[in-house]
């Protein structure tokens, strides 16, 4: 059903479409945008959006008898929260991830991410 594309790549591309659109999209709209580059079944796009909604990274809203999908966070927000998670250390989290530069206290890191974003 997915042809040569892995599910992970497809999920990433669907997210990119939603982020770039800047407004909620229907399944048909996402399908149209992705179909410009390749052959893709409508039901596949539906399945992927459903999976992303279940993961909590996409929200589903009903408008004009059609479901529309929007990212739960902007790309910048999600990137910042991932970086914060990566660099935050606590007793519980020490074992979770390994870092190259060493550990930072969370508020110092939040400030650093914010400062870097404004540059």
């Amino acid at each position: 059903m997915l042809g040569h594309m892995a599910l992970g790549d497809l999920e990433r591309e669907v997210m990119t479409q939603l982020w770039d659109a800047g407004e909620p999209l229907t399944v048909r709209q996402v399908h149209e945008r992705l179909s410009r580059q390749r052959d893709l079944a409508y039901t596949t796009v539906m399945t992927v959006l459903d999976r992303l909604a279940k993961k909590g990274v996409v929200t589903q809203q009903k408008a004009d008898r059609a479901y529309r999908y929007a990212p739960a966070q902007t790309r910048e927000e999600m990137t910042a929260s991932v970086m914060l998670d990566a660099l935050t250390s606590s007793d519980d989290q020490d074992a979770a991830l390994a870092y190259f530069v060493g550990r930072l206290p969370p508020d110092a890191l939040a400030a650093a991410i914010e400062a870097a974003r404004k540059k």
Partner: peptide, 8 residues
């Protein structure tokens, strides 16, 4: 994305 250098 993002200019803050980070590797892990």
């Amino acid at each position: 994305d993002g200019p803050l250098p980070l590797a892990y």
